[in-house]
């Protein structure tokens, strides 16, 4: 069977959905962050696929994927740092415990 664009897109969609559902449903803070990264991967797969199959003349898709990888890393770093500050008080990774507000 030949692997077409739609197969890649399907993988991207599945990863994206896993990411979204995971970040909503997960009870562990670290798992939420992992889910967001999975979502990021799904989107990047989409971009790279479209960049390969559709936007032939330009590299827009690849560039946006690269940028988003970097942005995702920064976002994760900030999130982990702020989580660390919170963790110092609560000593727990369960999201239920971070509901003071």
């Amino acid at each position: 069977m030949e692997i077409t664009m739609y197969h890649y897109l399907f993988v991207g969609l599945v990863l994206f959905l896993i990411g979204v559902l995971g970040s909503i449903l997960a009870q562990n803070v670290i798992k939420v962050l992992i889910a967001i990264e999975i979502m990021l991967t799904g989107i990047n797969i989409n971009f790279v696929t479209f960049g390969t199959y559709c936007g032939a003349e330009s590299f827009d898709g690849y560039i946006i994927a690269l940028f988003y990888t970097g942005i995702g890393a920064v976002e994760l770093a900030i999130a982990l740092y702020i989580f660390y500050l919170m963790f110092q008080k609560k000593k727990s990774e369960n999201i239920e415990r971070y509901r003071e507000l």
Binding site: I43, N46, F50, G61
Partner: peptide
């Protein structure tokens, strides 16, 4: 961005 990727496609 997921929306953007499809729009790009």
């Amino acid at each position: 961005l997921f929306g953007v990727s499809y729009l790009y496609g």
